[in-house]
Amino acid sequence: MPDSEYAPDDLPLSGITVVDFGQYIAAPGAAQTLADLGADVLKIEGPGGDQARGIGVYGEAIMRAYNRRKKSIVLDLKAEDDLRHARALIARADVVIHNLRPGVMEKLGLSADDIRELNPTVILAAVSGFGTDGPSRRRPGLDIAAQAETGMMSVTGEADGDPQRVGFPLVDHATSYVVTQAVLAALFRRERTGLGDDIDVSLLDVAIDLQCANWGEYSITGVAPHRRGNGQPTAAPAADIFPTADGSIVISAYTEQRFAQLCDLAGRPDLPKDPRFVDNPSRVAHRGELLAVLAPFFAGLDTEAALAALTSVGIVAGAVRTYDQVQSAPDVIASGIFATGSTGDGHTYSIPGLPYRSRSTPRTADAGWVPELGEHSHEIVAHYRLGEHSLT
């Protein structure tokens, strides 16, 4: 593989080349993480670009969130010359990632077997909505369909309300992490064996896996989990919300020790002996009454004072914050998780970077750039010696 020209040579994936055929979030997100780790990521876009480029504010947000540090080249894969260039890039890549609809890559002559013939040691990661074996293998799939069909929406929302989606594309984002994990494992295996790998990841599988705790509960009780609003279904107070003088706070104090400490703090040491609250099953059965009894204590405190009081006795609690409050929170500022990205038109924006730090991947204030459509076509052609490029 060619030496890296684009990334610092001391990052973990320096010298690794990734060809990214991804659209929207799941595949592009994985490729971006590999870019943050030092890989050269070549984003292959059709003449209209990643489909996210054409859907307004949300699409622009996706481009900013999942396409930093990449090089964009426009290739019309239905044109013979451009398809040949795509094949040439694949032949020199370490990793190929795509989430095109099932059958699309095959129609282009870029099936797993075709890619393996071009590059026997490549790591090929393919993302689908519903997997490659079941009756829905040809269905298009997005985050919301995976949330719906895996029970996630059935357990989200108020007990007497409609099923609700999670408030952000959780499954797509988590899938990008799963793809990254699988690619890194395959690269490590290749170092030992010299062999490439084919990776299949589906939104369906990831969405099911994200609910492991619920599946564990279901295996014990035989009762399908259902919507309950806030609060853990088998423990109280746990994940329960209390309004404060200036906001809200969520707490978990469901062990007998923590519950007694909470009651002492609230000036109600009698509550642990109340038959309604004597143990977790009783507190769950009388959750509404319990919250009503404790509510006046929290209503008389501002959020930070309530947090301090609970923390002083070791009770887990969190302030319910809005996005603007999150960015100004001292812990968030100290973590350095937000960095500054930039766009081709010169705009800068705040965006989360890698959610961990290490000596080999220290956090940086520069989140990288989001490429304009085809911004690096000439550069990639020259660097990879593709010859005459139609620059569609």
Rank of each mutant, 00 (worst) to 15 (best):
L301I: 00
D274Q: 05
A309W: 06
I351E: 12
A319S: 12
A295R: 13
S252C: 09
A285N: 11
A260K: 08
I249L: 15
G300W: 00
D279F: 03
Q325I: 05
L294N: 09
R287A: 06
D302T: 00
G344S: 15
H286W: 05
V284D: 10
S350W: 02
L265Q: 04
A295M: 12
L262W: 03
A308D: 14
A339R: 11
A317R: 11
L307K: 11
F259N: 10
V316H: 09
G336Y: 06
A299M: 10
A334L: 06
A260I: 00
L271E: 09
E289F: 03
Q325W: 02
T348S: 13
A334W: 03
A253D: 01
V284L: 12
T343R: 14
T340H: 10
T340N: 08
A253G: 05
E256I: 07
G314P: 08
A305K: 14
A308N: 11
A317T: 05
G346W: 07
S350F: 02
H347Y: 08
A295G: 02
L265R: 02
N280Y: 03
A260T: 13
Q257N: 12
D274K: 03
H347A: 15
V332T: 12
A306N: 00
V313Y: 07
T311F: 01
S328T: 15
L265H: 00
A329R: 10
T311S: 15
A253P: 04
S252F: 02
L310K: 09
A253E: 00
G288K: 09
C263Y: 04
N280I: 03
I249C: 02
L262T: 03
A292H: 11
Q327R: 13
I351F: 02
T322H: 08
P296V: 06
I249W: 05
A339M: 13
L271K: 11
R321I: 00
Q261M: 12
L262K: 04
L307R: 11
P275G: 04
I337P: 07
S335T: 10
S248F: 12
G247H: 05
A305I: 08
I315L: 05
V278L: 09
V293S: 04
D331N: 15
L291F: 08
F277E: 05
A308Q: 14
V316N: 10
T322R: 14
G346S: 05
V332L: 09
F277Y: 14
T255M: 06
D270A: 11
S350I: 06
I337W: 08
I351N: 10
R287H: 03
L301T: 01
C263A: 11
A299I: 01
R276A: 11
A334R: 13
L265M: 13
S282G: 00
A260F: 08
D331W: 12
Q325A: 12
P296Y: 10
E289Y: 03
L262E: 07
L271T: 07
S248Y: 13
Q261K: 15
P272T: 07
E256F: 01
T311G: 15
A308M: 05
A308I: 08
S248Q: 14
Y349V: 11
